[in-house]
Amino acid sequence: MALLEIQGLRARVEGNEILKGVDLRVEAGAVHAVMGPNGSGKSTLAHVIAGRPGYEVTDGSITFEGRDLLALAADERARAGVFLAFQYPVEIPGVTNTTFLRHALNAQRAERGEAALDPIEFVRMLRDKMRALDITENLLKRPVNVGFSGGEKKRNEILQMAVLEPRLAVLDETDSGLDIDALRVVADGVNALRSSARGMLLITHYQRVLTYVVPDHVHVFAGGVIVASGGKDLASELEEKGYADFVGAAAA
């Protein structure tokens, strides 16, 4: 059984059809890169998987570990093991980062029938993960993402992923807006979470990140569908030729 199985997926946002029949199969242990030009619908795919309200699925199915993912609300999907790293992490004034992370983890622990971690246990658990991602105490005490730099926000996304240990991680342009040092830290964080039990969907516009996080499969997304799939070499091919050929293929 595949970890994630998407079949014939069509979805609309504000009445416009963005996804026009997506088929994609992600096995546990595999990292899939989804590449495509701006406006191709790849971020929409990420949000539809995560269950964002306002994204209306009109046809097709998403099966996650044999369950109908589309029947679950966003929070239920997350507790089932789906994680979305946001392209634009949301600022939440008044909620500290620690409180936010602890609530998120404890919600998932409750789902698995595990006891909640108290604040002290939680911070102890968090320390190692923070160190690896170069996240300081200070960032934990501040309100979620408020006043964080672009790099801090993205590292914070990866920290959340490290804490929640999802079965499926969807990373929506996590590399965008990062300088090379920040990109390396983020990529290291992603690589550290690669595991035979976990699948990843790495959505990106640029090939650059794929030299740090080497994917098992690469898909080219254009016009709301996957127009080509291949191994990691497909990414280099894209880098040389650009998206034009593939976009043409989608239109044809």
Binding site: G51, A74, A78, F100, A104
Partner: peptide, 9 residues
């Protein structure tokens, strides 16, 4: 949605 996407009911 950000909170929901982290599993918070």
């Amino acid at each position: 949605f950000y909170l929901l996407s982290r599993g918070i009911p």
